[in-house]
Amino acid sequence: MFEGVPLSWFLILSTIMFFVGVYGFLVRKNLITILMSIELILNSVCINFVAFNKILYPEHMEGMFFTIFIIAVAAAEASVAIAIIINIYRRIASIDVEKMDKMKY
């Protein structure tokens, strides 16, 4: 049982974090900073899971396990993403997302 802080606070916090991440995803040009924005988004989701778990159903552990899995997926995603970024950097000597428009019309 966790007292003092209502669930909605956690949710508001994660919402703000999520949309900050979205904003970063939309405006940053550097691929690595976009990756960081994605990490922010994932992290906000983790907070949601954990808060729901702890405050609404403290006797279960689903939220926590999903958080663990999300962290694992995030790690995998980050490693693959960075491999891709390095590959792109080797090819076009830049990681500016606006220069990667090969797949246009």
Binding site: M1, L7, S8, T15, I55, L56
Partner: peptide, 10 residues
């Protein structure tokens, strides 16, 4: 979120 009233477990 604010419209919904979450009731914490006791």
């Amino acid at each position: 979120i604010l419209q919904y009233n979450f009731i914490g477990a006791v």
